[in-house]
């Protein structure tokens, strides 16, 4: 499979009033053409920072990409300058933000907002841009697109607006679409419709999607692969089947127990006790140690190595060490 986007050992921090927040502390993953990769984790674990780093939209200051590489078709985005990045944003990588109520400019017609992206990147006439915008509105399932083009955001419902935002992001036919919690602000029924739409547009356009969410329920519907993030790092990554049916990391297991599941009947909902660590001074070893039921002394001292369980299933946890396995089996 072609790797369209590669993130390697990304470190991002923010200098604030209270100190330096190490928001992302060594994130690596690949995104393949035409797949949906979900990044899941509790709020504050660095999902948005990761995605905004890929767009190079981290506000600097206070933020700073300390190290790492982000390859898009062989180019390292970290090395690029603003003018070059502008050519990539919207054209090669697009991004959708959480709240469709605020993601659209209230004083500009949605037609103009969809068209301006394509006018920026492609050398075409307004007429052609309008045609492209109409096609996009049609693609995302908005009826009467001709009339709708001339309307303002406040004339649309939340779900409709998210469709428009998606149309806006896709109008230049990007390779990668990053959706940061695209359904969090929506009603449950609308959520399902929007997720359906993601699947649909992926089939039609072949775009690769990074879907960011704190809700594993959302992921179950659409993700091909899932990366689980905790305290600025990816702790486990694998296919949807692997993550849902053979989770290895205690945090992944905890997350799975804390979401309602349709496939396991009568499953009890157990929230993970405790709170994520302070990213001002993250623990030296495994950040989950304070909340982990299996924590060992080693977990506090050294960050666990990455263990490969299958061709695409990786986990960072000391439980993978044979000595820990012996310990667990002797205890039970």
């Amino acid at each position: 499979m072609e790797k369209i986007l590669q993130v390697k050992d990304l470190h991002v921090s923010f200098t604030t009033y209270g100190g330096v927040v190490q928001a992302v502390r060594g994130v690596s993953f690949d995104l393949h053409r035409g797949e949906t990769l979900a990044i899941v984790g509790e709020s504050g674990c660095g999902k948005s920072v990761t995605s905004q780093s890929i767009m190079r939209l981290i506000p600097e200051p206070p933020g700073k990409i300390k190290s790492g590489q982000i390859f898009l078709k062989g180019m390292d985005l970290i090395q690029l300058k603003e003018p070059e990045l502008r050519k990539i944003r919207g054209a090669n990588i697009s991004m959708i933000f959480q709240d469709p109520m605020t993601a659209l400019n209230p004083t500009i017609t949605i037609g103009e907002q969809i068209m301006e992206g394509i006018l920026q990147h492609k050398n075409i006439s307004r007429e052609q841009a309008k045609k492209a915008a109409l096609e996009m509105l049609h693609l995302v399932g908005i009826s009467n697109p001709e009339i709708r083009l001339k309307q303002y955001p406040h004339q649309f419902s939340g779900g409709m607006r998210q469709r428009i935002v998606i149309a806006m992001a896709l109008v230049c036919q990007p390779d990668v679409l990053i959706a940061d919690e695209p359904t969090t602000a929506l009603d449950v029924t609308i959520q399902a419709q929007i997720l359906e739409l993601f699947r649909d547009i992926q089939k039609k356009t072949g775009v690769s999607i990074i879907l960011i969410t704190h809700d594993l329920g959302v992921v179950a519907q659409v993700a091909d692969r899932i990366a689980v993030m905790y305290a600025g790092r990816i702790v486990e990554i694998g296919t949807r089947r692997e993550i849902f049916y053979q989770p290895q990391h205690p945090y992944t297991k905890g997350l799975l127990q804390s979401v309602p599941r349709l496939d396991v009947e009568g499953a009890e909902l157990v929230p993970i006790p405790g709170t994520p660590p302070d990213l001002f001074s993250p623990p030296k070893g495994c950040a989950f140690a304070a909340r982990c039921p299996y924590a060992m002394e080693v977990c506090e001292k050294v960050y666990p190595f990455e263990t490969s369980l299958s061709h695409h299933h990786y986990v960072n946890c000391w439980l993978q060490d044979v000595r820990a396995k012996a310990l667990v089996s002797s205890n039970h």
Binding site: M55, L57, L85, R86, K87, I88, R89, G90, A91, S94, M95, F97, Q98, D99, T102, A103, L104, N105, P106, E116, G117, Q120, H121, V165, M168, A169
Partner: peptide, 14 residues
């Protein structure tokens, strides 16, 4: 700081 400004940046506008 509004989202629509972020969106505009994400479109690659100058």
């Amino acid at each position: 700081t509004q989202d629509y400004i972020k969106t505009a940046k994400a479109k690659g506008l100058s």
